[in-house]
């Protein structure tokens, strides 16, 4: 390996990417869950003017990149950013910056505190080495704005609705609202009831949010955990590892196991999802869930 290659592998680790122009680099900044303060943005503007060409590029993963930074200025620029609390992102075969939607902080559909989970995942996994790049995303509900199923690990806020007869005025709205047509009205000797086909329900919270009389209550709330999603050259949507994980502890435990399994079994440059296809989803799921 030449000196230069070594150099760029080391720089990739700290979020600096070589451009095609000689000696020019991209600085990839870290914004967990896509959040930066106004003061941090002001600092980015200063650094982009001083060391770049006065513009930034927004990546598809909620990141800000400063382009055209000369290699001699990388360290100075990095330190200036760090003073404003902005760390560098990551490139190469390791865990990338965690992306997340606003979740229950400000979105009416949010089922979970996406930002808190993103910060926790950041503390646990950011920059950890892996066979290939490793992306994690947290999305507050089945609207799936941060595309949980396009990530190596995806976490999606989930609720399990429960019908309560008492206040239901039999209006039928929920039947029309459910995007998967999972709700149906059932007549019986005791009267009517509304029931869910659990096979098709995507735990989205539309029924619980919009039932006018509050008859769709939240029975259970938690996370749907996806593994093995990737876009890129060979796209593969993620598979569900577990439909409803009820506690944060269990969530992190399962992610630990999934990541550990990938690190132990993934071939060099092989994405998690492609490893799953090679080994077989059932085998992988069993290995991760088996000793739960």
């Amino acid at each position: 390996m030449s000196g230069h290659e070594l150099d760029s592998a080391a720089l990739g680790k700290v979020g600096m990417m070589r451009q095609k122009q000689p000696d020019m680099y991209v600085m990839r900044l870290k914004a967990v869950a896509g959040d930066l303060t106004a003061d941090q943005l002001a600092c980015v503007a200063v650094v982009a003017r001083k060391y770049g060409r006065g513009f930034v590029h927004l990546s598809t993963r909620q990141g800000i990149e400063i382009h055209y930074v000369h290699k001699d200025n990388l360290e100075t620029a990095r330190l200036e950013l760090l003073e404003a609390g902005i760390e560098m992102g990551a490139c190469g075969p390791r865990v990338r910056v965690i992306v997340a939607c606003p979740g229950d902080d400000s979105c009416r559909w949010g089922n979970i505190d996406t930002k808190k989970i993103a910060r926790e995942l950041d503390a646990r996994y950011f920059k950890q080495e892996a066979p290939s790049k490793f992306k994690l995303a947290v999305t507050g509900c089945s609207h799936n704005c941060t595309k949980a199923n396009e990530n190596d690990i995806g976490i999606r806020g989930a609720i399990e609705p429960k019908w309560e007869a008492s206040d239901c005025n039999d209006c039928g709205l929920c039947v029309s609202l459910c995007p998967l047509h999972s709700i149906s009205r059932v007549d019986s000797d005791e009267g009517f009831s509304y029931e869910i086909d659990w096979e098709s329900c995507i735990n989205c919270s539309i029924c619980t949010s919009l039932c006018p009389s509050g008859s769709w209550a939240i029975g259970r709330i938690g996370y749907t955990l996806f593994i093995g999603g990737t876009m890129g050259k060979i796209p593969r949507l993620a598979s569900v590892l577990k439909q409803l994980v009820e506690t944060e502890e269990e969530l992190y435990l399962l992610i630990d196991k999934a990541f550990g399994y990938y690190c132990a079994n993934g071939r060099k440059k092989e994405r998690f999802g492609h490893m799953i296809d090679r080994i077989g989803l059932d085998t992988v799921k069993e290995a991760i869930l088996g000793t739960e």
Binding site: C171, L173, S176
Partner: peptide, 16 residues
């Protein structure tokens, strides 16, 4: 449905 819920109005019957 969202607008009606936000403004507190009633939904009596919904039919497809």
């Amino acid at each position: 449905a969202q607008t009606l819920k936000d403004s507190g109005h009633r939904i009596v019957k919904v039919e497809n």
